[in-house]
């Protein structure tokens, strides 16, 4: 029995809340989803103790998110007022929460949430493919989170080398472990530093930052920081959650267009973007979580006369 089939059996027996998402996405996305998810389950959740910890974490994460969304609708579509420091104490620097709920929850959501999987397809097909054809395949991943996106590049592009940044030691530990589990750790350098206060960061031809903006008080300032890390002529991939209340989402994007506009405002040229809803709106839930994923470039410096 494959790891994927085993996990489906475990979910159907013990995690009723997940079984619908699992079977729906397996049917909707087919062999590619099965191959990618199966690989991650083997490498990252290879023993059943880890698997149960992650499935329980995902359940807590998903139920918590849906409860917050219900509150969000009740409050007229507004996030709870919170600053970065408070979110950091509650989430990023809380080891138990990060390792047992938050990071496993996000990791599994890449395959169990329709909009997250659509974003992954967009990322791989439209952006990683460009890195694979580049002469210089070095990149910055700013806000590595689980490490999932860095791994997606490194495993597909043998010449790639990542410099991953995060302020959470637990995110960096999770990324380091995940890179090791995929046998990619030798091409992944990690730094626990703020890109806005670190001097002399070398520019790279590629920069990614996936679902980080909504965690910040000043996402425009952060985007300008990303712009400075990108070589002229380079490409960036930036994604953000829209109308998606979470315990650590403090900047509220009300539309996908707001994200796109802010990326332009930071100086980028927007090449293409994807907008994806988590599910269809209903009478009870007229505003649904979605995301905007943007591929943007930094125009080469004008050449002299």
């Amino acid at each position: 029995m494959s790891r994927l089939d085993h996990v489906q059996e475990v979910i159907e027996r013990d995690y009723g809340l997940i079984k619908g998402s699992f079977s729906r996405n397996r049917k909707l996305f087919g062999p590619r989803w099965e191959r990618e998810f199966g690989e991650m389950l083997e490498k990252v959740m290879g023993d059943d103790q880890d698997l149960h910890r992650c499935l329980k974490g995902y359940t807590d994460f998903a139920v918590g998110s849906m409860r917050l969304h219900a509150q969000f609708i009740q409050d007229g579509g507004r996030y709870i007022d919170k600053g970065y420091e408070q979110a950091g104490d509650e989430v990023y620097h809380n080891r138990d929460h990060m390792m047992n709920e938050y990071l496993p929850g996000i990791l599994l959501s890449y395959f169990l949430w329709v909009h997250h999987y659509r974003q992954l397809l967009f990322f791989v097909d439209q952006f990683v493919d460009v890195i694979a054809r580049a002469d210089d395949a070095t990149f910055h991943d700013v806000g590595v989170g689980t490490g999932f996106n860095t791994v997606q590049i490194l495993k597909r592009v043998p010449a790639a080398h990542a410099m991953g940044w995060d302020l959470s030691e637990h995110s960096l530990a999770h990324t380091e472990r995940m890179a090791r589990q995929y046998g990619l750790a030798d091409r992944c350098t990690l730094r626990r530093e703020n890109i806005l206060t670190t001097p002399d960061i070398p520019q790279r031809p590629f920069v990614i930052s996936v679902e980080v903006l909504e965690h910040l008080e000043d996402p425009l300032g952060f985007l300008r920081g990303l712009y400075n890390m990108l070589q002229p002529g380079g490409m960036a991939y930036v994604a953000a959650a829209v109308n998606a209340p979470h315990v650590d989402h403090i900047y509220h994007y009300r539309s996908e267009q707001e994200v796109v506009d802010q990326i332009r405002q930071a100086g980028f040229h927007v090449e293409s973007y994807l907008g994806a809803n988590a599910y269809a709106p209903t009478r009870r839930i007229p505003i649904v979580p979605s995301l905007a994923a943007v591929i943007a470039s930094k125009r080469p410096a004008a050449s002299g006369p």
Binding site: G20, R24, V63, M66, R67, A70, R284
Partner: peptide, 8 residues
């Protein structure tokens, strides 16, 4: 009656 409806 899916998982989302269940939570609702």
């Amino acid at each position: 009656w899916d998982s989302l409806m269940h939570i609702n």
